[in-house]
């Protein structure tokens, strides 16, 4: 097993006071709380911080941990608690830790202080409910999908760490692969509910649900805003000026689109109902981006000089009205 340096996790010196520990924990808890943080590995970090705090906040556990820490580097290969560990400090059986707050701690923690008793599970669960037959808890996770998965209602596979009861009744984290049919038209931030795929219930209660919060992968072409899909469409200056038909890729296939005459930079053109499908289907927007041909080409240069010399056009006239 791997030794965990709880002081390092909280950025503390070994002689930190209990107040320092509390302060450091609060700081990191705010930084990495999965409901607040945008850090990619927030959940893992938050768990590590919680585990470190669980040990260091308790003077007795801290003392026990400090005794180990003094010579943990001796056997670099891996870490084993000393044989008389359990006799010196009676943390076995899990009764010592507060059930619920310790789920998903590392095996290092479990070996030293005993596993959390019941209520295993992902961080997202909350430990509520009592000792009567009750429905298992809902399990939450974030999943990444592609825009096309939502549009076509594709089947995607997700691998999730889910709590399971092993034979001895301990909660262990298991990797489960689920094949999920994505509900058509789901938006970013919405949640897929998989009925009875969450935690086992207690006392014969039914399983909780699995709630998958959807995040879209960045798309090569499109950006998505709620149900609407946006494409920045590059056009030549004469296409914007004179108008005309252009071919436009949409998630539903290529379409011909008419660019109106005298279209300015940033003009939005709408294809109704070609956004995310389903209840209140979204629209597809094309945003015109006028691209200039490179003036390093002598022909382009000549054309531009001709326009400058022959056209009476001042795009800034309105800036100086009233002068």
């Amino acid at each position: 097993m791997e030794y965990k340096d709880y002081y390092e996790t909280l950025g503390l010196a070994r002689d930190a006071s209990q107040d320092d520990i509390k302060r450091a924990y609060r700081k990191f808890a705010r930084k990495y709380h999965p409901d607040v943080s945008k850090e990619a590995d927030a959940e893992t970090q938050f768990k590590a911080v919680g585990e470190a705090y669980e040990v260091l906040k308790d003077p007795e556990k801290r003392e026990a941990y400090d005794q180990l820490g003094a010579n943990w580097k001796d056997g670099q290969q891996g870490f084993e608690p000393p044989p008389d560990w359990e006799q010196q400090f009676d943390f076995g059986g899990g009764g010592y830790t507060q059930g619920g707050s310790t789920h998903d701690f590392s095996s290092f923690f479990d070996d030293l202080f005993g596993g959390a008793q019941s209520h295993g599970g992902s961080y997202y669960q909350s430990s509520r409910g009592g000792g009567f037959p009750s429905k298992g808890e809902n399990v939450r996770a974030k999943v990444m999908i592609d825009l096309e998965d939502s549009i076509n209602g594709e089947v995607r596979s997700f691998s999730l760490h889910m709590p399971e009861m092993d034979q001895s009744g301990q909660m262990v984290s298991k990797l489960r692969t689920l094949k999920v049919k994505i509900p058509k038209g789901i938006k970013e931030g919405q949640t897929i509910r998989l009925s009875k795929q969450g935690n086992q219930g207690a006392g014969g209660g039914e399983r909780g649900d699995l709630l998958l919060e959807v995040v879209f992968n960045t798309h090569r072409l499109y950006t998505i805003d709620g149900k609407d899909i946006y494409l920045n469409l590059p056009v030549a200056p004469w296409e914007a000026s004179l108008g005309g038909k252009v071919s436009v890729p949409t998630p539903f296939g290529n379409v011909e689109m008419k660019i109106p005459e005298s279209s300015q930079q940033g003009r939005k053109l709408r294809l109704k109902g070609r956004g995310l499908p389903g209840k209140g289907a979204g629209d597809f927007y094309v945003v015109l981006q006028i691209m200039l041909p490179p003036v390093s080409d002598p022909k382009v240069k000549a054309f531009n000089e001709k326009m400058r010399d022959e056209l009476d056009f001042d795009p800034r006239s309105y800036l100086f009205q009233g002068e």
């Binding site: 089947v155 489960r176 692969t177 094949k179 999920v180 049919k181 509910r193 009925s195 209840k279």
Partner: peptide, 17 residues
């Protein structure tokens, strides 16, 4: 528990239930 060959699960859009 379930494996790679498990059934396809159909989900609902939770917010629209």
């Amino acid at each position: 528990m379930s494996s790679r060959t498990g059934p396809v699960l159909s989900g609902y859009i939770f917010e629209e239930e």
